[in-house]
Design a protein around this nucleic acid. Structure first.
Length: 314
DNA sequence: AAGGACAGCAACCGCCACCGG
DNA sequence: CCCGGTGGCGGTTGCTGTCCT
């Protein structure tokens, strides 16, 4: 598609011969230099002023999604993925609103993530991507799974820095380390994990590093979720606030979901209200607990083995 | 080695809200 | 109030690289 010219639809476009398709390095340079000198805005004028044969919209998109200096590249962290799941459950496909809470990430990137990763899973499960069933699946399994990863990463990094005898004592008496258990079951039910995450200052808890907390430590973050900003009762324990708002807001504690991860019937957790196709969900070969902490990219494929009961005839 | 399938993602499109004349 | 320009947003497309057979 390189160098593809826009279809000539009217005399004005014929006159300007607007370019389409991938941007060249030269175009990027022109746009960047022009914005550096003159700032953003008035994109149609900007495009002409910069000598670009592009629409203002195209220039805006290129700048916001690719050229802007604070754009963060690379895979989404588990924290970011967790945040996306939570915010999407609240706001739906409000990508730009969600992106406001992920510094350096664009709405386009988040949208692509959702479509390629999350919706793909929904298709494989034969669940409507925005259905209540899927929302429940996300809340009940994928989000706790991400939290687990975050916890593991946090604990792992803390081990590398904790080396005094006192620290070792704390470690040896801690009730919360991610014990390497050979059983493919949860170390503890999500409720208890959330409990100790709600007390981040405790000396013997390994802290759950919430995405909001991380964001607060970032130089670029300027916003927090609306609830936190709007609800004065959420302070002063930020970790507590985060946990309550982020995780325990809805179905976790209310629905009495079964957390027996060996075999889980989706319908028993309040799902299956939209169709009558109960799914059997199994944790894939112990991955729930012992995934490599270095595996920072959340791979849903290794999380669950779903079988449609209709196929198995159970 | 070749080519088909698939995933990831940059870019485009259409719609809509806002704003100034 | 109307209208045209502009920008923002969500949905969609299609190119490219990678994996698989």
């Amino acid at each position: 598609m390189l160098g593809v010219r826009k279809r000539i639809c009217n005399p004005r476009e014929e006159e300007s011969e607007l370019r389409r398709g991938p941007w060249t390095l030269e175009e990027d340079t022109l746009l960047t230099h022009y914005i550096t000198r003159h700032g953003e805005g008035r994109w149609n004028m900007l495009a002409r002023g910069a000598g670009l044969k592009r629409t203002g919209k195209s220039c805006r998109l290129r700048w916001l999604n690719y050229l802007k200096p604070d754009i963060k590249r690379g895979n989404l962290t588990p924290q970011e993925q967790l945040l996306i799941l939570e915010l999407h459950s609240k706001w739906g496909n409000r990508w730009s609103k969600i992106a406001q809470h992920l510094p350096g990430r664009t709405d386009n990137e988040i949208k692509n993530y959702w479509r390629t990763k999350v919706q793909k899973e929904a298709r494989q499960l034969n669940i409507e991507a925005n259905s209540k069933r899927f929302l429940d699946a996300v809340r009940s399994y994928w989000m706790p799974r991400l939290i687990q990863k975050i916890e593991q990463a946090s604990y792992s990094s803390s081990l590398t820095t904790l080396d005094s005898p006192a620290d070792r004592e704390v470690r040896s008496t801690s009730s919360n380390p991610p014990v390497h258990n050979s059983s493919p079951t949860l170390l503890c039910p999500p409720e208890s994990r959330f409990t100790h995450c709600s007390n981040p200052g405790s000396e013997n808890s390994f802290s759950f590093t919430s995405p909001y907390l991380l964001s607060t430590n970032s130089n670029t973050i300027s916003q927090q979720p609306d609830e936190i900003l709007e609800n004065p009762s959420c302070s002063p324990l930020l970790g507590d606030t985060v946990c309550n708002n982020l995780i325990l807001s809805d179905t976790y504690n209310k629905e009495g979901s079964s957390y027996d991860m060996d075999v889980f019937n989706v319908a028993s957790a309040g799902m299956g209200t939209h169709d009558n196709s109960p799914l059997e969900c199994q944790v894939a070969e112990g991955n729930w607990v012992f995934d490599s902490v270095e595996d920072t990219l959340w791979n849903m494929d290794d999380m669950w083995v779903f079988r449609d009961l209709r196929e198995t005839g159970i």
